[in-house]
Design a binder for these strands. Structure first.
Length: 431
RNA sequence: GGUCCUGUGGUGCAGUUUGGAGUGCACGCCGGCCUGUCAAGCCGGAGGUCGCGGGUUCAAAUCCCGUCAGGACCGCCA
């Protein structure tokens, strides 16, 4: 393979002949002077060719270029203070068109999000869009590193299931030979199985599937979930203490690597507000009121409202909402002995967007069975799940976090579609 | 699933209220001119079943009904 220079290295290679690979970002072809801007994943650089009067094959090749074509070029790197792009340019002696782009391009930087999604591979050539996934990579690596530091085992639980995983509602059905399978809505039950297996602390980063026709800027039918579960917890407070420190370190890793993003590394502990207090606070200090069909929790407007109140009072972007009423939580959330109307549970909001749900889980077989029955569920029919609690299961708790949502809030993106390599929603299965 | 908004050359828009020839703008595309451009510039050109189907009308991008697609908020959630 030809030794390839990257645009970012060019300042250190002035006076040398280099070979660059990249896309054609700009063409400014004049009669005598031809300028091309080449873009690789590290930056953009101006290429220059002064046309000859006579036979000029190189100039002819440049004349045939189109925007976004993939090219390989060679030439000398020269200092050129007048060049606005980095004060240097490459004087070409060789150009190879590796793949000529058709014209015109089906989208440009002004295109709407849906058009951009249709041509996502072109959209992602934009440096700012690529950046989202550079941030994701650093964020995810940091999350994994903290977990490994803390002795967590990484799980890869199955996504094909014989029975619906969590609530039993809104799961995708798929054909499975001569029977039916479901796509995992959450690794919830498998994380709990790992706890029963004595794994102590586990986490998983993987796809989850939701068959909910949700048309909002923060929902997807397939997204990457980051889940963690810990054994021997005293309450959900232990889970929150882990999560806030885990996030502080993970966000710090991003802020460290990408200082220009202006990401605020949060202080710990994060503010905590019980659901009951949050509702009271909102009704006292804002015009928020419970809507019809109120279940004792908050709607998105309430979540934005409480986040704003917390920001004013504590100067903090994050808030744990705790002690959700049992009406708003699934049967397996643990209810404290002294307050049977609430659960040892929490949501975590960042800038008013829900990024996490967590809880201490009910680990006592008989209690779990009773709570399931109260919601009209036959606990034992959920197959293997009931068995987890029959042969000694540690008290435990954990949480699930939406990676795309976290990125979306972190980068101030308008939609989770931007924070997802290839978005999947109710009306989008391609590309 | 509910409510509201939007579909007009390749892209992004204006035109729709008050019906009158596919009218306009920016970018892109094609051709010409152009020694240093850098949001290149100047001149010329091509490119449209106005999302789709039906209706009203002498006449529909424009009004009405249906339908499809997209968006915002709600419900649901991460």
């Amino acid at each position: 393979m030809i030794e390839r220079a990257l645009v970012a290295e060019l300042p250190a290679r002035i006076g040398q002949r280099v070979t660059l690979n990249g896309f054609v970002a700009v063409l400014r072809l004049q009669k005598k002077m031809q300028f091309v801007v080449l873009r690789d994943h590290t930056g953009q650089a101006q290429l220059l060719h002064a046309r000859d009067e006579g036979d000029d094959q190189l100039g002819d090749v440049l004349d045939g270029l189109t925007l976004e074509s993939a090219i390989r070029v060679s030439g000398e790197v020269v200092e050129a203070a007048q060049v606005k792009l980095g004060g240097l340019e490459v004087v070409l002696d060789e150009v190879e068109v590796l793949s000529l782009a058709e014209t015109p391009l089906p989208m440009d930087e002004k295109s709407g999000l849906d058009t951009r999604m249709n041509w996502r591979f072109l959209d992602l050539r934009t440096p700012e869009h690529r950046r989202i996934f550079e941030v994701q990579t650093v964020l995810e690596a940091a999350m994994r590193e903290v977990c490994v530091d803390q002795g967590f085992l990484e799980l890869h639980s199955p996504k094909l299931m014989g029975a619906a995983s969590e609530s039993g509602a809104e799961v995708f059905k798929v054909e499975y030979f001569d029977t039916q399978a479901y796509l995992a809505q959450s690794p919830q039950f498998y994380k709990q199985m790992a706890i029963a297996a004595g794994f102590e602390k586990v986490f998983e980063v993987g796809p989850v599937f939701r068959a909910e026709p949700s048309f909002t800027s923060r929902h997807a039918t397939e997204f990457t979930g980051v889940d963690a579960e810990m054994a021997w917890v005293e309450s959900h407070e232990d889970v929150m203490r882990f999560e806030e420190e885990w996030l502080r370190r993970s966000v710090a890793a991003v802020a460290d690597r990408f200082p220009d993003l202006g990401v605020v590394v949060p202080d710990v502990p994060f503010p905590r507000v019980s659901m009951a207090d949050a509702r009271e606070w909102l009704q006292r200090d804002t015009d928020w009121r419970p809507g019809p069909g109120d279940k004792g929790d908050l709607d998105p407007a309430g979540e934005r409202g409480i986040a704003e109140l917390v920001r004013q009072e504590h100067g903090h972007e994050w808030v744990f909402l705790t002690e959700f009423p049992i009406t708003a939580r699934p049967f397996y959330h643990l209810r404290p002995a002294d307050r049977p109307d609430v659960t040892n549970s929490f949501d975590l909001l960042w800038k008013g967007i829900e990024v996490t749900t967590g809880a201490q889980r009910e680990h006592r077989y008989d209690v779990l069975k009773r709570q399931a029955a109260e919601l009209g569920m036959d606990f034992e029919s959920i197959g293997f799940y009931a068995d987890i609690f029959r042969f000694g299961c540690p008290p435990h708790g954990g949480f699930g976090l939406g990676l795309g949502r976290l990125l979306m809030v972190m980068l101030g993106l308008e939609s989770i579609r931007e924070a997802t390599f290839l978005f999947r929603g109710p009306n989008r299965l391609t590309p």
